[in-house]
Design a protein around this nucleic acid. Structure first.
Lengths: 156, 156
DNA sequence: TGGGTCATTGCATGATTATTCACATTGTGA
DNA sequence: TCACAATGTGAATAATCATGCAATGACCCA
């Protein structure tokens, strides 16, 4: 039986305690626990244990690495094409309508909105992934949001 | 305004997509998006964004690594952490909430907001040090601003 | 406009981590 | 028990990441 299970158990303790900022430091900590091992082995251990490296040191993962991606629906043509391609959420917010897109896509959708000639669109402000659309009133906002959802094939 | 907010947005997109296993690969990916930057700057960006390195590549943090449970969702714990560290002002503006951070920290706080699952958050626009949060209405804005102030331990 | 201060960024290099190669140890089946 | 396969480990080195320093840009003020 190798030292590995015992060593990895000790590694987990140290990582949980927030004590580990580098593999060489970990090696020294283990040394002081009577475990003599090289950095190469520790690199392997940390990988095997799924430990992640943050700016402030090593951490245990709390969950799997499925990075929550913003789902985007399929696209169509013109405004419908871009909004269908890049927008995933259309909500009323008072007299505004808020469209969410994937990062970096708000501008192109906003251009499509500006060119669409939709009467309820008074103006748009777009950042990276969010577009604020000004409408004349609350009812107009609801009307526009409903229309955009249909174009984008998004459910409310 | 420097390239940094835009670049960091794009970095977040790529990391979320699970596309990034090394900083040099990230540099190439950004190059193909027309963003020319060195590995040194990317190291700084990734640190600023709180991105962690796992065996299979870079990930957004799911939590702050503390194992204590406070009854908040993981996303809200993370939000509390980043907003507590980086935000210094939370104000309502009609149906919007405006969060001010230290320079360069808006993006990471916006990540926290997006991941928090707070229902009143319809969308966010983040620049370098300012975040605009869209909410469904004036009351929702007040409610959210109040909640964020509490998380950030900021007085009105 | 010019000067001062601070932030951002690239270059170069140091620090850290991952991997290859060689060897040792352990496990397994005949 | 023996032969071979599988696994573990260290040393050396390659790959990757972090940081000091200097240059430049942004911003502010007189």
């Amino acid at each position: 039986m190798t030292q590995r299970p015992r060593r990895q158990s000790r590694i987990l303790e140290l990582v949980r305690a927030g004590s580990v900022s580098s593999q060489d430091q970990l090696r020294e900590l283990l040394e002081s626990h009577g475990l003599h091992v090289t950095q190469a082995t520790l690199s392997r251990d940390l990988r095997a244990l799924g430990v992640v490296k943050a700016a402030d040191g090593y951490r245990l993962p709390e969950s799997n690495g499925s990075n929550g991606s913003t789902g985007m629906s399929d696209g169509q043509e013109e405004l419908a094409r871009v909004i269908g391609m890049y927008a995933f959420s259309v909500r009323e917010a008072g007299t505004m309508v808020v469209v969410r897109t994937g990062p970096g896509h708000a501008q192109i959708v906003a251009v499509g909105l500006d060119r669409s000639g939709l009467g309820d669109v008074l103006g748009t402000i777009a950042g990276d992934d969010t577009i604020f659309i000004a409408t004349p009133g609350v009812e107009a906002a609801e009307r526009l949001a409903s229309a955009l959802r249909e174009l984008a094939e998004i459910e409310a």
